[in-house]
Simulated scan of single mutants.
Amino acid sequence: LWDRRLGFGGSHDDRNVHVYDSKQFPDETLRIVERDAQIPGSKVHWRFQVAQSRGELDAQISVLRRTLIRSFALLGLGLIVLVWLQTFYGLWPLRRVRDEIARMRAGQSNRISTAMPDEVAPMVEELNALIEHNERQAEEARRHAGNLAHALKTPLTVIMNAATAQSDDLADTVIREARTMRRQVDHHLARARAVGRRGSAHSRADVWPSLESVERAVGRLYRHVRIDVTGPRGLQVHVERQDLDEMLGNLIENAAKYGGGSVFVTVSKHSGFVEFLIEDDGVGIPEEERLRIFDRGVRLDSGKPGTGLGMAIVRDVAEIYEGTVSLEESEDLGGLLVRLRLPAAN
Rank of each mutant, 00 (worst) to 15 (best):
residue 208 W to R: 12
residue 244 L to R: 01
residue 182 R to L: 08
residue 136 R to V: 12
residue 221 L to F: 05
residue 163 A to D: 02
residue 184 Q to N: 12
residue 130 L to N: 10
residue 199 G to H: 14
residue 239 V to I: 11
residue 196 G to D: 10
residue 213 S to I: 05
residue 204 R to N: 10
residue 222 Y to T: 11
residue 136 R to I: 07
residue 238 H to D: 02
residue 166 Q to R: 15
residue 260 G to R: 05
residue 131 I to L: 15
residue 158 V to I: 14
residue 213 S to G: 00
residue 250 N to W: 14
residue 252 I to R: 00
residue 221 L to H: 03
residue 138 A to Y: 12
residue 233 R to I: 01
residue 228 D to Q: 10
residue 163 A to F: 04
residue 167 S to T: 13
residue 210 S to D: 01
residue 131 I to C: 02
residue 198 R to L: 01
residue 162 A to F: 08
residue 146 G to L: 11
residue 134 N to F: 06
residue 251 L to D: 01
residue 257 K to Y: 05
residue 144 H to C: 07
residue 149 A to D: 08
residue 247 M to L: 15
residue 160 M to G: 04
residue 228 D to K: 15
residue 164 T to Q: 13
residue 230 T to I: 00
residue 209 P to R: 11
residue 148 L to F: 05
residue 138 A to S: 13
residue 203 S to C: 02
residue 126 E to P: 02
residue 167 S to E: 12
residue 177 E to V: 08
residue 243 D to F: 05
residue 136 R to P: 08
residue 212 E to I: 06
residue 158 V to F: 10
residue 236 Q to R: 15
residue 142 R to A: 14
residue 124 V to Y: 05
residue 156 L to K: 05
residue 207 V to G: 08
residue 220 R to A: 11
residue 216 R to W: 07
residue 251 L to Q: 01
residue 231 G to L: 07
residue 157 T to N: 14
residue 246 E to H: 06
residue 259 G to H: 05
residue 179 R to W: 07
residue 236 Q to Y: 03
residue 219 G to V: 08
residue 187 H to A: 07
residue 244 L to G: 04
residue 236 Q to K: 13
residue 208 W to G: 00
residue 141 A to C: 07
residue 132 E to S: 14
residue 226 R to D: 10
residue 146 G to I: 04
residue 227 I to C: 09
residue 260 G to W: 03
residue 195 V to L: 15
residue 134 N to V: 08
residue 130 L to F: 15
residue 144 H to D: 14
residue 186 D to Y: 12
residue 137 Q to V: 13
residue 130 L to T: 07
residue 161 N to K: 13
residue 212 E to V: 15
residue 169 D to G: 03
residue 189 L to W: 05
residue 180 T to Q: 09
residue 142 R to H: 09
residue 196 G to R: 12
residue 238 H to S: 11
residue 175 I to R: 12
residue 225 V to H: 04
residue 220 R to W: 06
residue 201 A to M: 00
residue 214 V to Y: 06
residue 155 P to C: 12
residue 131 I to R: 06
residue 238 H to R: 13
residue 155 P to W: 04
residue 141 A to M: 14
residue 243 D to P: 03
residue 229 V to C: 00
residue 139 E to W: 13
residue 224 H to W: 05
residue 230 T to W: 03
residue 207 V to D: 01
residue 169 D to T: 06
residue 214 V to F: 02
residue 152 L to F: 01
